[in-house]
Amino acid sequence: MIQVTNLVKRYGEKEALKGISFSVDPGEIVGLLGLNSAGKSTTMNILTGYISSTSGTVSIDGHDIVKDPTACKRVIGYMPEQFSFYPDMRVSEYLNFVCDLKGFPPDPEKRKKHLDGICSRVGISKMTGRMIRNLSKGYRQRVGFAQALVGNPKVLILDEPTVGLDPSQIIEIRQLIKDSGKSSTVIVSSHILSEIQAICSRVIVIHEGRIIADGAPDRLMQDIQTNHRLAIRVQGAQKEIEAVLSNLPKVRSVKALPQRELGTQDFLVEGKIGSDIRADVFYALAKANLPLLHTYGGELSLEDVFLHLTGDKQNAREEAR
């Protein structure tokens, strides 16, 4: 459905995208994950034809976005990161305008039915007579989502659709995206890992204009949550514990963390890539009569993912030497 090949985008000296390639099959819900300025929005803007790439190609439903932009745009529903609306328009007027723009459906009765269906799906049926400027942020986002659904697009491109929403609104929008995935191919960008996990069947991680990972979110997390890195809390003197842990052959580094409990010390113990250090750490501490009180990892943050993905490449290069 979507084929992106070697996409490069330069803004003057700055290279925002450095040769991104990926393809998306029909019915997939793909998440673009990345920190701010990673290149997510630039990628989406190119996919929607809002801006052009410096080089590379984008094909949507068999049409090239540069050669045949109108045909591409006909199959795309796009919700930009900042949903901008005309302040003088009511919800129904705005959605009718979007219908006019997309030329769908021209028949008034069919159009009404179509729009009623969309409004009902996104939960704005009671808001159609209201001015958009008077709606809350959550409802505005829904209107933005509704306009993307006009014309039953084959491809839905949603740029950070839950930004600025409260938790209950986030859950609702996520459900809407999941439901939309049943009839459309969806690309959704976010910088929240848990969001991508909750919505997407596949995640593409972008960092500094490059794809650094591409796969199922669970697989990605599994890869990251390796057993070669442990955060532990041990009862005893810092130097003694450090000495015991540093002597383990599989351990690469031992880093003391801020003390959280009196008489104990927290450490981040890192083993060699691919090694499982859990048992070794346990037995070594037990042998030295240093009680292991606690091991913890906690939720992985996006920063952890990036540190892992970028750090691992660095480590892999070092170990290869």
């Binding site: 034809g49 809002y50 109108t70 745009k73 930009p80 901008s84 306009q147």
Partner: peptide, 14 residues
């Protein structure tokens, strides 16, 4: 200024 042009420029309109 209001970025409403995004809707127009991503719609199937020349």
């Amino acid at each position: 200024r209001a970025k409403t042009d995004q809707l127009l420029l991503t719609a199937p309109v020349s």
